[in-house]
Write a protein that binds this DNA or RNA. Structure first.
Lengths: 208, 208
DNA sequence: GCATGTGAAACAGTTCACAGCG
DNA sequence: CGCTGTGAACTGTTTCACATGC
């Protein structure tokens, strides 16, 4: 299949494959079969082949995949290589941790703006970036070419924060707030809820 | 249906429903229909009814669900109410943020132990808890009745950390490390990868 | 009368297994 | 000959639509 839309569940696995290929490149591996790639990624080989087929990707029959070429295709699909400006909204403990997270830079993400509403926090510098006021978001987004937002605000502030980033032109948002959010038109939202993850794990723990 | 195993995808929505019911209780609402609950949770009403049916949950036909009763059932399934001790493995920025995260306590999670390998960090106090050495994990887990672990270690250390927490008796683990991990027998693992989430969002951004 | 709970239908995702190509 | 790419079978999930019972 050629590159029509990638199914959602496949999409969540592409970054995993990309990471595996980064490793292989680092180790000088030139070619890898679907069985080898799948083992490193923790999935079935048939699933990996099916996933890659959605990208219109080409391996060589009898040989496997060219590591460098496949890596390039995945990076292309995920927009790695293009610089992606990120704004962190909400500079509490979690916001600081995200702003300081070293794992973003190698994947092309750069935290170029931080905003908060607390006057005690606005004006301070975190991870080399001065914290701006939430009201300045539209200007910061435009000036610094922000394309993604990370919401690390309290739950009660999350909907307003989402509306604000959407209004300022950001179309991709990752929220850490424990809230169901109404998503403005044209915005892609993903949510991570740490307490919810722990509750899901709790389900498997012995009761009482 | 009565309480057989809850399907995985249903399970991920139960904490959302639990949150919605918390809100309704706070606002003094006594009864709610599947349409109302589903709207607040951001899902379809049929899906919510199907999900709840897996719990063997009982609403009243023609009326809806008793908010307090349904909340109690969900809390029971997710183990809320039972105190859950959590150990945070890796006391960097993210580990500190998790340890200080106020959203855990209302859901019954208590960070009772922190461990790291860095001698500069071991012995310091974070969020009111003294940081222990990774080598002390088995003792800390036993003494403080830890049932869940959160891994906030660098990717390269994640597999060792997972093996260590599993060996110390923890059976439920939430990892923030950007790595595919081999899961020891009997352990439930969930993973959150912030950079991967941003990459998934990047897929939807305009290219080049 | 009205909203639940659930068969049945529709849809989506995964795995099997092999034809076909390098 | 070995491995990809993919039809076909299968498994799981969501949605429909309505009989049932409060």
């Amino acid at each position: 299949m050629t590159s029509t839309a990638v199914p959602p569940q496949t999409l969540t696995r592409l970054p995993v494959y990309a990471r595996v290929l980064d490793d292989l490149v680092r180790r000088g591996v030139v070619t890898a079969s679907s069985v080898e790639l799948a083992a490193a990624a923790g999935v079935e080989s048939a699933q990996l082949r099916r996933d890659l087929s959605h990208l219109g990707s080409y391996g060589k029959r009898g040989v496997g995949y060219d590591v460098a070429e496949l890596r390039a295709q995945l990076r292309g699909a995920l927009g790695v290589g293009r610089r992606r400006g990120v704004v962190v909204v909400g500079v509490g403990n979690l916001g600081r941790a995200v702003a300081s997270y070293a794992g973003l830079v190698p994947r092309g993400f750069e935290v170029v703006a931080l905003v908060d509403v607390d006057p005690q926090v606005v004006g301070t510098t975190v991870a080399g970036v001065e914290v701006g006021d939430l009201a300045d978001l539209p200007r910061l987004v435009a000036e610094r070419e922000v394309s993604l937002a990370v919401l690390t605000v309290p739950g009660a502030a999350a909907q307003d924060a989402l509306d604000a980033v959407a209004a300022s032109g950001v179309r991709s948002v990752l929220s850490f707030a424990p809230r169901a959010l109404t998503v403005p038109d044209g915005v892609a939202l993903r949510s991570v809820d740490v307490a919810a993850e722990l509750q899901i794990l709790s389900y498997y723990l012995p009761p009482v």
